[in-house]
Design a protein around this nucleic acid. Structure first.
Lengths: 163, 163
DNA sequence: CCACCAACGTTGGTGCGCCCAACTAGCTGG
DNA sequence: CCAGCTAGTTGGGCGCACCAACGTTGGTGG
């Protein structure tokens, strides 16, 4: 294999990729998900955490509302809530004011599970951000939040998997 | 549905999530992938771009080496290269020095495809980063690169899908 | 020289996340 | 009263990431 005149690094992606924000974010997400799953013990628990955290902070929500807040498809939401309900972490009840809707409420067991998951999720953030100083971590969060707030206000482009 | 005493925002995730770097990065990746796919016309083209960019920058590589540099599984690599070879964008040849390996080379058509994809990918970065100033964009890239360099040096935790 | 091990490429498979359509029941505004 | 929309459910598909197993090739040490 002929050597290049400019010496390529022995490993890692090409420069064109490693300066692309979308590529960087994509790969960091892969690593972040593995770190979170490693701390939580199972990948799906991060969605459990998101659901329980939402119910804790906002109080009872409908399935559709929960899905809107967390960007989870309504049909996937059914399955997630079935599992949480089966574990006694949430309670589903008809909404007397609107029988189309369920009122989803976190239970005492769900609150305990949430507290436990929260510690682990925080540890995973430390794992992920280990090389950054506190100031850099704050800066990163600010930039990411700014981007998400901006994009959250606009309709997403069509789903990529069908294009 | 009883109102909370502290007013919850009408939409969006709970505070516990919107300050988690791993959550922020995850959701931004979803948006980034859609924006890139929207510009490129098809989701899979972003992997085509990564492969062609690697071959352009590093010169001919083996499948395994390409996979290591881009964090792509060897068996998935076979399928990706089959498609690119079918489109005439790369050429596969046995490596005369080591017949275990193929030498993957970008073709002239592949170089043209790369140039076209590159413009689109750059436009997608502008779409993604629209609300950030140039200084903020540079800062974001620096932070993400720092994190990826750090994590690239350590073995990844086990894959999350089997835990 | 040969057994053993590792690397490479391929085939085949699985699971998860994300997305969608279609259906039924319920609510609202004209 | 009813069209149009919402909510929840069922069922399905696709892409991506991951894995095991196999056959071939190459390197190494005895």
């Amino acid at each position: 294999m002929p050597a290049r005149s400019t010496e390529a690094p022995p490993s890692g992606p090409p420069e064109r990729l490693s300066r692309l924000p979308s590529w960087l974010i994509n790969h960091l997400t892969g690593r972040a998900n593995r770190l979170v799953a490693a701390r939580l013990g199972r990948a799906g628990l991060r969605t459990d955490y998101a659901l329980l955290a939402s119910l804790q902070e906002f109080g009872p929500l409908s399935q559709a509302e929960l899905g809107r807040r967390l960007a989870i498809d309504r049909s996937d939401m059914v399955a997630w809530l079935n599992r949480l309900e089966g574990q006694g972490l949430i309670r589903r009840a008809p909404n007397p004011d609107d029988r189309r809707r369920n009122a989803i409420t976190i239970t005492a067991a769900g609150t305990r599970a949430l507290d436990r998951l929260e510690k682990l999720v925080e540890e995973a953030q430390d794992d992920l951000l280990e090389p950054l100083s506190a100031a850099q971590r704050a800066e990163l969060v600010t930039l990411l939040q700014q981007l998400l707030d901006f994009h959250h206000q606009r309709p997403p482009p069509p789903a990529d998997s069908k294009r």
